[in-house]
């Protein structure tokens, strides 16, 4: 049973001033947590896209061993709950780095929560992004890539000038979805004690017992982020699909 209880129904929402930005209000701390959330989400998303692009190319053009390893990576990551992965990668990652430093004779370092969060969520995102981008690249008509090669473009130039621009319209819906997932997955970092929006909210609610006020406020912040990015991705998709027939 939750620890604290209201004695009076009217107490429920009488605590909005707890969100104020003056002394004793949690406003700045909530916004600070929100800012950390956005930073981690953007960092992890960019890292995930990078892993995804190389992962997709590796899956499509790599050697048998590369393809095999990538298949294990994407299958395992997508089958294990994010919360378990975050803990495993967090402990294993920081442990591995520190034992490596130890072996080289350096003292152990304290890895910042921001970097660890970005790395962990980025590796998870990478597995999903690999599949999205692989599917998008395969949707590019073969002839376009062959035409680029026939013009004498090197494989890097083909990738930069033809494959990537042509696959982007196919990839955007999936990648937009991944952005929404990573923005929401940042809340899981609260479990390893990284102070982003979810953890700040939980602390604020725990101290003040104004559960409704803080969880609703946090929900509104997350919702504003997702709604705003939805608009952005819609415009992006429209831009990327210009000249192509409308989707029904």
């Amino acid at each position: 049973m939750p620890p604290n209880t209201y004695h009076n129904m009217s107490d429920l929402f009488a605590n909005w001033q707890l969100l104020s930005f003056s002394d004793g209000g949690w406003g700045w701390r909530m916004l600070g947590g929100f800012w950390s959330t956005i930073q981690i989400a953007v960092g992890a998303y960019v890292l995930g896209l990078t892993i995804g692009l190389f992962g997709a190319l590796g899956k499509l053009h790599g050697s048998t061993i590369t393809r095999w390893l990538l298949e294990i990576y994407t299958t395992l990551i997508r089958a294990v709950p994010e919360l378990v992965l975050i803990l495993l990668l967090y402990y294993a990652g920081t442990g591995a780095i520190n034992s490596l430093l130890d072996a080289m004779g350096h003292p152990p370092i304290d890895i910042s929560g921001l970097v660890a969060g970005i790395a962990v969520l980025g590796i998870v995102q990478g597995a999903y992004a690999t599949e999205v981008i692989r599917g998008a690249i395969r949707a590019v008509p073969r002839g376009q890539i062959e035409a680029a090669q026939a013009f004498g473009m090197s494989s890097i130039t083909t990738l930069r000038r033809v494959t990537i621009p042509a696959m982007i319209p196919h990839a955007i819906p999936g990648l937009a979805n991944l952005w929404l997932i990573v923005a929401k997955d940042t809340a899981l970092l609260a479990v390893v004690g990284f102070s982003e929006l979810a953890l700040v909210t939980r602390q604020a609610a725990g101290v003040t017992h104004a559960y409704w006020v803080f969880f609703l406020a946090a929900g509104a912040l997350y919702l504003s982020l997702t709604l705003f990015s939805n608009l952005l991705f819609k415009r992006l998709e429209k831009h990327a699909r210009r000249g192509q027939p409308e989707l029904s």
Binding site: P2, T5, M9, T186, A187, A198, G219, Y222, L227
Partner: peptide, 21 residues
């Protein structure tokens, strides 16, 4: 549009603190 973790905590702590009243 909101994390499941926040929904879960809102229901458990929020609703849970409401019932005893």
């Amino acid at each position: 549009g909101t994390p499941l973790l926040i929904q879960l905590w809102l229901l458990y702590y929020g609703l849970g603190s409401l019932f005893p009243s």
